[in-house]
């Protein structure tokens, strides 16, 4: 069960109406290494992982939904008043033809989200290594979006999200150490 708090994890400020930026940001919404993939990957892997790390997957999977909500807010603000002409100029003409200005789970090239982006191997080490890789890939994606963006307010929010990827990667690496059961034994191989 979840309890919903009706506010964003970090304030989302957008200074310009810029649908092109929304097109890039959608990568973190419905892309392979986006927040939706992350949330569903972790919350699904929980069931078949040793109980010592279930709580971590629950916590991080839940936080990913908070990030998804921030990304959604950014995309919404960047496109909500964009005219069809502006959408077309931003390369979102085909998106507009299908969805108007609605959000959709797709990547920045318009490819719909698919469950093949995530995996559950049932092997705890394989799953956690996938999670670590996913966090590093999401961190890199945030860097490239910051490089593409000229909106300082938006970049402030993206910087926060990138920092969270670093922390999540750290915690997943600690989870691997816990499962290796050699943590703190001061044993040298």
């Amino acid at each position: 069960m979840w309890i919903y708090e009706k506010k964003l994890q970090y304030p989302v400020r957008v200074s310009t109406c810029n649908p092109t930026l929304a097109k890039y940001l959608v990568e973190q919404y419905g892309g392979a290494d986006g927040e939706l993939s992350a949330a569903l990957r972790y919350l699904n892997q929980r069931y078949s992982i040793p109980d010592k790390v279930i709580g971590l997957l629950t916590d991080i999977g839940t936080e990913e939904f908070a990030h998804l909500e921030m990304i959604a807010t950014m995309i919404y603000k960047l496109t909500k008043d964009a005219t069809p002409e502006m959408m077309k100029a931003a390369g979102l003409g085909d998106h507009y033809a299908i969805h108007d200005n609605a959000l959709y789970y797709e990547n920045s090239s318009g490819v719909p989200w698919t469950a093949t982006y995530i995996q559950a191997k049932g092997d705890p080490i394989a799953d956690l290594y996938e999670d670590i890789a996913a966090e590093e890939k999401a961190r890199a994606t945030y860097q490239w979006i910051i490089n593409l963006s000229d909106d300082p307010d938006l970049n402030d929010g993206l910087r926060f999200l990138r920092e969270r990827e670093i922390i999540h990667s750290q915690r997943f690496m600690e989870a691997v150490e816990i499962l290796k059961e050699e943590q703190g034994k001061k044993k040298f191989f």
Partner: peptide, 8 residues
């Protein structure tokens, strides 16, 4: 763990 990123 704080490592802010800015557009290079």
């Amino acid at each position: 763990f704080y490592d802010p990123y800015f557009n290079p």
